[in-house]
Design a protein around this nucleic acid. Structure first.
Lengths: 333, 333
DNA sequence: TTGAAAGCGCTACCAC
DNA sequence: GTGGTAGCGCTTTCAA
């Protein structure tokens, strides 16, 4: 089914059909009606590839995330998608499973689609990408990774701040043995969270003992990490998780072991995903404004042509601690 | 950046560049190298729209879901995506927010993309769609809704079975006051779950009292529904949720109210999503094999050309009860 | 208000 | 092995 067949059926030219379908130019009401009817009868669906090719422009945004199963990423996607939808854009999402090679492939694929803008919300990185993207000339938003450039805006969260506040808070509650649960040790931005943890620990040198464990980014991973942690004999009074998703599993493992939270062990997450409020006990965490990040991404990608000052090319977010029920005084305090 | 520029730079024809890029036909190793280098230097990314247009075929599958935030849908997407990826296909996903109008738009959009196959995993429906899709001639898989047709395969879960087993199980534990928590009362397949509940209730006529509440498909919705339920004065000893996602909220509300699960109230979900195992207490639910559904969808869409018998066009899944910790004897039993 | 026709960037077929 | 070239289905001037 093509434009031409519709045109023939309606007894007009393809140009006219195109005008009708795009509400462009002026078309006599009667012909418009004829065209629309022909479309219906023929069950015509315009070929979007042809449209993009001919039109040269695109109303599609791309988004790449590390792990779409983690609500943190999913929420940002939904937020972006929602604003985009309101503005008559669509967004296609791809995920990398934290693998740099898949990141590269995903970026290529997005560039091949000629997306109008690309949001890269990932934890892994491949240095060559920033050159490739910067050369591509399409608006790009990086979250967590990458560097600002002509067409690249950076959004990053000050993890150190969040981590620091969390540690200070726990310290003030008397905790002196803390453990960090993370995932994918090799990745930079995650390393950043771990480093933030270690740095903060450094300040209490001697005073606070600590360790860390690593597994996959999932509740099951969190559970496994907690298991490992507990089996090691190190008896933390507080476990800080790299994110809420893993914290779910940590909570579960603790319960399984008969340890009460926060009675025996305090637990903190990071991100403040929706379900962190529905865990038992409700999770103390660090809020990252995912909705806002999605909205910002849209603004930057679509309306960002205005702001060209490189000064605006880096956006910093200060996360804030959200105290709920999973943290309390250290047992021995 | 176009094929032609690459060809010029490499000193060959566009045909040759195309061959190299698609590993098609035979190309001398030296020219192949030249072409590849030109691509690299020029940072060339083939225009996928042009490719689809010219090639006529597509390695993209489409998937439409009602609520991508609900892990049930997300899991099926991930499963499909994963098999697809292994076979060098991609899948684009769109979500409808349970709105028939968005379903129609999503289908149109997918048809416009000329996807190689379409999986429609939704709870809402628009009757005209099945005609439209059946005319489109692309392989389609419907889950829960729609009817089999020449190019349409149906996967459906026998909710009645799952619901029935759940009710029987609860009944055997002494429960005589049950409540159903659902969402989007108007939708057919959901109605189906509710009806399954009501039907089963009917069997115990007089013996079991029951009611139901409705809210949005989210933990917050579940919480609200539970709130409403409890405020009504009806004191259920068991709450059956339309899915696990909402059950999360129900569990939370109960805890908030100081009601113990399963001591005071038993709770069941449906779907057996990953986190249902991580709730507190772990959720008794009905398993729906999401991974398998995603895999089946792929097989049907991509390899399904073989099976043409209409007999194969409907696949039934019997869900099974997974008993965990959120259910127990009725308090007064 | 409408039509003719020149591309958009690529694939695929047919020559050489 | 490689090049020429006719489309793929649509948008978009430019004329009429």
């Amino acid at each position: 089914m093509t434009l031409e067949e519709v045109a023939r059926r309606a007894g007009v030219s393809t140009a006219t059909v195109s005008r009708v379908l795009n509400n462009a130019g002026v078309v006599k009401e009667s012909t418009r009606r004829k065209v629309l009817e022909a479309c219906r009868e023929l069950r015509y669906h315009p070929n979007l590839h042809a449209r993009s090719l001919a039109g040269g422009k695109s109303r599609t945004l791309g988004m790449i995330v590390s792990n779409i199963q983690n609500p943190f990423f999913l929420d940002i996607f939904c937020s972006l998608e929602s604003v985009a939808f309101q503005h008559n854009y669509e967004v296609v999402v791809e995920h990398t499973d934290y693998r740099p090679s898949r990141l590269v492939a995903a970026v290529r694929s997005m560039l091949g689609r000629r997306v109008a803008g690309l949001a890269v919300i990932v934890s892994e990185m491949e240095p060559s990408l920033i050159d490739e993207l910067s050369a591509s000339n399409i608006p790009v938003v990086f979250y967590d990774v990458g560097h600002p450039a002509r067409n690249i805006t950076n959004i990053r969260v000050r993890y150190e701040k969040g981590m620091q506040r969390t540690v200070e808070y726990l310290y003030s509650l008397g905790h002196r043995r803390m453990a960090f649960v993370g995932h994918h040790a090799g990745l930079d931005p995650l390393h950043e969270r771990l480093r933030a943890f270690l740095d903060t620990m450094g300040r209490y040198c001697g005073e606070v003992r600590y360790t860390s464990a690593v597994s996959s980014d999932s509740p099951a991973g969190g559970r496994q990490a907690a298991h490992q942690l507990l089996a090691s004999g190190f008896e933390p009074t507080a476990i800080l998780c790299v994110n809420d998703f893993m914290a779910l599993g940590v909570l579960r493992e603790l319960r399984e072991r008969g340890l009460s939270v926060p009675g025996d062990v305090s637990v903190t997450g990071f991100d403040n995903i929706g379900i962190s409020e529905f865990t038992c006990p409700a999770l103390t965490t660090v809020n990252i404004p995912r909705r806002r990040i999605g909205e910002m991404a849209f603004e930057i990608l679509v309306q960002g042509q205005t702001a060209t000052a490189n000064a605006d090319r880096e956006i910093l977010i200060d996360p804030e601690l959200v105290v709920r029920e999973s943290t309390g005084p250290a047992p021995e305090a």
